[in-house]
Amino acid sequence: MRAQIFSSILRASARPSALGGARTGPLLARFSSSHAQESFESFTDRYVKFFQNAEDLFEVQRGLNNCFAHDLVPAPSVIEAALRASRKVNDYATAVRIFEGIKEKVENKTQYQAYLDELKPIREELGITLKEELYGH
């Protein structure tokens, strides 16, 4: 008799209760994926402003490292701002290096040529020679 009661209690406790099964879904919701995606235009604005305000060579090169680290080729306006910034801090080598960076980032030669054509005025204005023109390859 007592053994029977005992076993029925055990069986009842082994059965999943209705209350326990009501918990559905994870309690911890993660919102790490809900960042606002920065648009290309705001990215461009941000870096144009950054390069216009850059004070020294360190800042310019830091900004270049950052804006070339994204999965996009910076817009010509950003490049122009960066070139003017490197003129401001008197660093010719960085200006040449920027074009080298573009060459690395673009997908093919026509895109690189398009960038060169687009930036031809400022290249002539500042007197920037490309690395290819410097070393002839």
């Binding site: 010719y92 080598a93 200006a95 290096r97 500042l126 007197g127 920037i128 020679t129 410097l134």
Partner: peptide, 19 residues
């Protein structure tokens, strides 16, 4: 100086020293 006044050698030197 104005970069347009730099000679090719000077430009090369500036680039080489830095990069």
């Amino acid at each position: 100086k104005d970069w347009k006044l730099l000679s090719l050698d000077e430009k090369k030197a500036a680039y080489y020293v830095a990069f």
